[in-house]
Design a protein around this nucleic acid. Structure first.
Lengths: 215, 215
DNA sequence: GTCAATCATCTTGTATACAATAACTACCTT
DNA sequence: AAGGTAGTTATTGTATACAAGATGATTGAC
């Protein structure tokens, strides 16, 4: 499908940026990258263009492109936006999800629970994402869904941090139960509120961690 | 500032796509565009990459770049998302806007009113956008603000259609008053609801128009 | 010794050349 | 005549060559 070398490189670079392999402000040297990927500068430049357009890097004319890792402030803003978007998805999903969707959601939730009992954090992480993705889809608005998915992946690396907090997993599961209940009952406002808090608390935890690191 | 020819071309193409100068599915011929802009294919290709990444065009490897105008369904989804995002901005802005922000908002509203009295639709259109932008900024979340601004510009061409409906302008001004009032009172939920309906009605009007065209 | 100016070098931006694949056409087979 | 196949053309993807601006160093003046 994707035989364009440039697109593959863009994907790879994106992964590298997400996993924090690049420092904030670091310049992406076209020649070095070309050498690393064993291609000429042309596909590298096309890949960099993608990063710039999607906001992961900044381009200064005649100077180069510099990767832009979100700072604490921007991260908090992204978490807040995520919380609000999830709330919107929840509100819409409450009246739009099919019975089949609700079954899928319930099953995803069970797998989350199972992962916790197995103390398999990676698995929990994966199933938790699925749980939320089912809600995005349940909102029956593919444009909104795409926005939600995009932000979810942007925050993936940072969301993981909350797992370090003691008791967070069980609290999270309680919240999931509430979310599931609200959606089943079709209570739009309740679903929105519970989801907003569920996601917002991740931002809080993240904030606490940042604060503790600066001490 | 922007001495990159490629960026200028990207901006120009973006404008052309927004103003509907391209048909949906139309292929963007690199050679023709290169000729039109009096440059080589290289900057054209970089510009096309930008369009593709921002979702305004689709790239099929080895086939070319095809512009993608949103269809009725996608447009309705975008209007709904816009309504929800505006609602979120309103809810946050209600407790975060400064007195100065509220003064600016009030002034923008007055200029909207003035434009209507002058039956200057273009002017109304401009001031109306300003009105909403002040609310985005009032939410004090620059990430969210950016998302809102992006969607606002994507929908600009279609939002204009509502102006055709008789009495819509006066109704719109009434809604503006309610929005302003809610924000001044710091009533977050009220502001969210009023804003959501205010924007959603544009989607409705748009829907009506589409339906009437298909008869 | 410090600051500024000029020159060399490095890097990006654009043009052109080449490679590879898809679209099209014409011819051949049945 | 219809369908398929080979060959031709056109278009995209990548490499390289060239142009222009930015960085950095060296030299000279004070």
């Amino acid at each position: 499908m994707n035989i364009r070398r440039a697109d593959q490189i863009a994907d790879t670079l994106e992964q590298l940026v997400f996993s924090g392999d690049f420092q904030d402000g670091e310049r992406l040297d076209e020649l070095k990258l070309a050498e690393q990927f064993h291609v000429s500068r042309t596909p590298i430049r096309e890949a960099l263009q993608v990063l710039v357009t999607s906001g992961m890097a900044e381009q200064i004319p005649r100077r180069g492109v510099f990767i832009r890792q979100p700072g604490p402030v921007e991260l908090m803003e992204m978490f807040e936006t995520m919380a609000e978007i999830e709330a919107v998805c929840g509100r819409l999903a409450a009246t739009r999800m099919t019975d089949q969707d609700l079954v899928s959601l319930s099953e995803a939730n069970d797998r989350c629970q199972q992962a916790i009992e197995d103390t398999n954090h990676d698995q929990y992480y994966l199933e938790n994402e699925t749980f939320h993705q089912i809600i995005y889809k349940g909102a029956a608005n593919s444009y909104l869904e795409k926005q939600a998915l995009q932000l979810q992946s942007r925050l993936r690396a940072y969301r993981r941090i909350q797992l370090r907090f003691r008791g967070r997993l069980n609290q999270s599961m309680n919240e999931h139960s509430q979310i599931l209940k609200s959606l089943k009952e079709g209570d739009a406002e309740k679903a929105a509120e519970v989801l907003r808090n569920h996601v917002a608390v991740q931002g809080e935890k993240f904030h606490q961690l940042i604060a503790s690191l600066n001490r």
